[in-house]
Design a protein around this nucleic acid. Structure first.
Length: 330
DNA sequence: AAGCTGCGCAACCGCTAGGTT
DNA sequence: CAACCTAGCGGTTGCGCAGCT
């Protein structure tokens, strides 16, 4: 395969196009078509290489190019197609009339990529990010641990302070944001993703088939079953995310009913897991969590969110997830 | 007001596939 | 069949602008 020498030739103009050059190119193509791009500049009286002319025409001067901001629908199309095709910008552009591959590529890199990152989605794999979202993945276990804690301290009146409640509230809000994206953004909806159940990676896309927690138990679900937990009050906020549409069938990591909870608790106590539960060397870094219920997760929920040393960590997660500024009211 | 920084976008660069000689 | 040519693609760069200090 030979290399085109076109742009290496000396004396050819580079850089931004002038209005005069644009007019020359438009007039020539309107009269004669582009024909051979290599021959075009000479015929049109342009001191440019053919490649430059072709790019200018296809990316900017073509009459059918749509200008202006991308619509929600276009955004969703791009995201969906990108999950299927990867960085095949020209293929994606083929499905968006009036949009060029260059424009889509730029829009992806400057807007959509960040948007997905903010939503906790890896823009490359289109799957939930594995770094900070591990924290969220651990929430159910942490909450379960909190339940156990309260059960084991039945004689104590468990009282969370305002700081703890505020942090719990903001985590709840954070999850609402994520769940709202999941439930309301059509790009994640079953209907629009029907043709997209298997992406390039042979995996189901987005949050519809695997929720952000990587398991079937959800934050509100757990809270609803936390009858004796003060965090129950957090579920009575003005917006109630609907996590109940539970298609997932992964094993329950925490009991779904108080009875089961009680049984499980008793089993754990029988097995002397309680010793581990109160292990002094528990791991306070939520990012070390994984989706299995190990002793690392037996740390009480309130201890985790009340850990002042982890504030910067929470700040980082929250700033990427929510638009609200830090610090949150305490 | 001036300098700095980050962002968005147009354009360029390097590479490859496919056609032609 | 190899060498060459062309168009097209995706990654990268650099300029202009806006916002901030």
């Amino acid at each position: 395969m030979g290399r085109s020498p076109c742009c290496d030739e000396n004396g050819l103009k580079k850089g931004p196009w002038t209005q005069e050059e644009d007019e020359k190119l438009i007039v020539h193509i309107q009269k004669h078509g582009h024909g051979s791009w290599r021959a075009l500049p000479k015929q049109a009286g342009l001191n440019r290489c053919g490649k430059s002319c072709r790019l200018r025409w296809t990316n900017y001067l073509r009459p059918d190019i749509k200008r202006g901001n991308f619509t929600e629908e276009e955004e969703q199309t791009i995201i969906n197609l990108h999950s299927l095709l990867g960085n095949k910008w020209s293929s994606i552009a083929g499905n968006l009339p009036g949009r060029t591959d260059n424009e889509i590529k730029n829009y992806w890199n400057t807007h959509l990529r960040k948007k997905l990152l903010q939503m906790g989605i890896d823009p490359v794999t289109h799957r939930p990010r594995t770094d900070h979202l591990n924290v969220l993945a651990a929430l159910p276990q942490l909450l379960a641990a909190a339940n156990l804690n309260s059960l084991l301290n039945l004689n104590q009146n468990v009282q969370l302070d305002a700081t703890t409640l505020a942090k719990a509230q903001l985590i709840h809000n954070m999850i609402q944001v994520l769940s709202t994206n999941n439930n309301t953004n059509p790009s994640f909806s079953s209907s629009t993703m029907q043709t997209n159940n298997n992406n390039l990676f042979g995996q189901s896309s987005y949050l519809e088939n695997q929720n952000i927690f990587g398991q079937s138990q959800t934050f509100s679900h757990i809270l609803e079953n936390s009858h004796d937990n003060p965090l129950d009050s957090l579920t009575s906020g003005p917006i109630q995310p609907d996590f109940q549409d539970d298609h997932n069938s992964l094993p329950l990591l925490v009991p779904a009913s108080p009875d089961e909870e009680s049984k499980q608790t008793q089993t754990m106590i029988k097995n002397k897991d309680i010793a581990e539960y109160h292990h002094p060397d528990h791991n306070t870094n939520p990012s070390s969590s994984n989706s299995t219920f190990t002793q690392d997760h037996h740390q009480p929920w309130c201890d985790v969110i009340d850990d002042g040393a982890s504030d910067s960590y929470w700040k980082e997660i929250i700033e990427q997830t929510c638009s609200e500024p830090w610090p949150f009211p305490e």
